[in-house]
Design a protein around this nucleic acid. Structure first.
Lengths: 212, 212
DNA sequence: ATTATCTATAGATCTATAGATAATGC
DNA sequence: ATTATCTATAGATCTATAGATAATGC
């Protein structure tokens, strides 16, 4: 515990990565320490050497880590394209499409209720700060610059997150679904221009109706 | 089993209602037979008289029932407003806002992996037929009538479902969130007109920027 | 005789701990 | 001596079954 604090701990990192992957794919309750151990090729009890505080703490740690990564990547993506809102929204969508799914709504539905109140509150706070806040700020600033119609930034941020979360569902569930990046682009243009045909149709629409 | 098939079975209905409520609020794995029994004021083992095929079959039954109810209500809502797309979309949104949440994405994330393959496929089929199909058809027909820009109806249906699912999340999670019906309206106008300011701004936007 | 409950419990998991064991570095 | 694993297992759940018990209707 003393020297390992500073040293890069290879085994522990592998454990966290594996747990993160499994948890975010199947949920806290559905994943057992047994399964994580099997994936790593060790015995279940051996995990507790690296994670002495147990399964719930492990979940909180990897989820927090994942959300922090999203905050950083999301902010970098938004900042990388300058102050135009349409570009920022597209950059945010590309970021989500490039990342492994988070199933935010699934977590709230199934994982949070299984955690202690303290951990639920903590994770909700992290989710707010890392995912909701950066996006709401983007909408709020665009609104103040007059680039978008004045709608409640919180509602827009929640809608955007729900849509990004939904891309996961569609692409895992549907047979022969389009790539996630293309779905992200289509959703961005939907959010920008809406469904109603415009007089000045400048061809921003992708994803035209094919068959079915 | 012989006479009870036709007779309305009061206790069994109460059991199904309670199970449906709990399952769709917390998920298949998180809800125990113990909890369902406690809610009903009976002992856990007594449930098996009404549901001899066990917990998983109970989940499949109540989820199927719930999806069928959605199909009926959704179709009735859409049909009740005639052929105008904007009205149909608003009616569908009102339907979802009026119903207890389904957490469709949460189910796919957490519940499906815990079921047998057979039951997963069955429920996916029911979800497709009851939720996805009616909405995709609405978009497809509006598209053919030229009322909306030509975008892939499946993508639009998935996006709409994700947004309706997301309303749940926002209204359960956010402090002092607006009522679900108002969020539904705002999302409909967002989908119709998009975020970009229009020259001919006919004031369809609700939910104007307030504070924060 | 049928219906609907109950008590008791087997059997299956799952988390987490205790203590042994092997390998590595001083 | 420290690090990282292992075996073994206690203790807590959870599902589902077996068989007893009470109430109702013929």
């Amino acid at each position: 515990m003393t020297a390992a604090d500073t040293t890069v701990n290879e085994s522990r990192e592998r454990l966290l990565d594996t747990a993160q992957h499994l948890f975010h794919q199947r949920g806290f309750k559905a994943v057992t320490m047994q399964q994580i151990a099997r994936e790593l090729g060790v015995k279940q009890a051996s995990l507790y050497y690296h994670v002495p505080d147990g399964k719930e703490q492990l979940f909180v740690e990897v989820t927090t880590r994942s959300f922090e990564q999203h905050r950083q990547g999301l902010q970098a993506a938004i900042d990388s394209v300058g102050p135009g809102f349409a570009e920022q929204l597209a950059a945010a969508a590309r970021w989500f499409a490039s990342q492994p799914p988070i199933s935010l709504m699934g977590m709230v539905y199934a994982d949070m209720p299984a955690l202690s109140d303290r951990n639920t509150q903590r994770l909700e706070g992290v989710a707010y700060r890392c995912l909701f806040e950066p996006i709401a700020t983007m909408f709020r600033e665009a609104s103040m610059r007059g680039e978008i119609c004045p709608m409640h930034p919180d509602l827009l941020a929640g809608s955007f997150l729900a849509l990004m979360d939904g891309i996961t569902y569609a692409s895992s569930n549907q047979q022969a679904s389009p790539p996630r990046a293309a779905m992200g682009e289509a959703i961005v243009s939907l959010l920008l221009d809406g469904l109603r045909p415009r007089a000045e149709n400048n061809g921003a629409m992708t994803y035209a109706l094919s068959e079915n």
